[in-house]
Design a protein around this nucleic acid. Sequence first.
RNA 1: GCUCUCAUCGUCUAGCGGCCAAGGACACUGCCCUUUCAAGGCAGCGGCGGGGGUUCGAAUCCCCCUGGGAGCGCCA
Length: 438
Amino acid sequence: MIRVRFAPSPTGALHIGGAHTALFNWLFVRREGGRFVLRIEDTDRVRSTKEAEKTILDGLQWLGITWDEGPFYQSERLNLYRRYAEQLLENGLAYKEGSAIVFRTPREGATYFKDIVWGDIEVENGSLKDIVLIKSDGMPTYNFAVVVDDHTMGITHVIRGEDHIPNTPKQILIYKALGFEVPEFAHLPMILGPDKTKLSKRHGATAVGEYRNMGYLPEAVFYYLSLLGWSPKEEGDILYPQEIVKLFDLRDVTKRAAVFDLEKLKWINKLFIKDKSPAELAKAMRFFWLEKGYNIDDYPESYLQDVVAILQGRAYTLQELADYSDYLLKESLNYDKIILAEFIGVMKGEEWNSLIEEIKKIDPFVVENIDNAVRSWLNKRGVKLKGVGQALRYALTARRVTPGIFEVMTLLGKDRVVDRLERAVSLVVGESSNWQDA
RNA sequence: GCUCUCAUCGUCUAGCGGCCAAGGACACUGCCCUUUCAAGGCAGCGGCGGGGGUUCGAAUCCCCCUGGGAGCGCCA
């Protein structure tokens, strides 16, 4: 039975690197069939917090990284570490130094292991220093606790970041001293910032939660992360977790550290947004709309879904999508008077009035009818749609970029369209009908 | 400094001795479509770090150099 584990220390948020590690463990174990164990490495009494732990678990759940056992806490297993440390003391393989217990590394020979992704790795034992097992405060050190935990928890495959490669020989020495079977190791490539150094806060957002708040979809983050150090034979289409599981193979993991590319993540996020059903998306949008202060409960659910449907695929994040939907979910528009005057200026006030009258007659108020009515009115007058279309767009949305203007008009409904047009025209033309560029 | 390790377009990668005058994706640049944007279509830019070998033949194997990364805590 294959058993893997993800063992974060609760000293901060779940960051991209951690999520990447958890993800690969998850893909591997779901692919091969086995159990995913979650272990909290909270032996650093000073830096560990319950809040950090919660953030990490939330982050994993958000991404859909499920675990089968745990969370287990190292802080609750202190006796275990103590007992094994004493065993080493009795065997003469470790010694006391003050109130700490230290492992005596062999001076001769070499320690070898075959990493699933890196291949053969060998280190001269002579280059290793003695290893502290139990700290003066009675807590085990990381290198000792992992060994005891991974063994007693029956972990068969240790999958973790490349930064642990130098620790591995030390741990293997301890496994052997304790008479434990050594598990398989698979080290994952590091995730770097644009400057090619280990990704950290100074590179920008590194916490998974930040991406959630910015409006990234969990599936998108999941897919993007899976692409760092691994790749499906054919890229191009988006893949959902279950599909990735089917294609995943630890042996295909790359060794070269990968630079985190936000541009690509954004693009992937856009694809996933586009792929969502309007109902699902509308649900996910609630948080972002509310954050914008829109009174979304004033509108029927079906309308909200229509709003999403017309906009999805044009935004990189849900936050952007919320921003783009303002004119559909807010009743008042803030025009830039100069821009409005410029757009409305493509036609005379009386022409606008005529067009508006024409629009009032459209029934039912659907895309095809609006399109026909507006175009035939324009044809009769010999006016091009280009300028008027843009004017309509700005007058109705206070934006220069929106989905197709006839789609927008349909969604807005005849009443709002007429109201907004009349107001826009009067703002520019004024009561007197003799208006100037502002 | 010591130890381990990596090295294909700007970025993520395919490639595991001949099918590679190196393929895809993101980004970027044109063009088409067009009521704006996006999408879509087409075209383009751009890379095997360097030097030695091995071989009939090397991006692929070996060595050296160079460059990068990680680790070297009674942190995890």
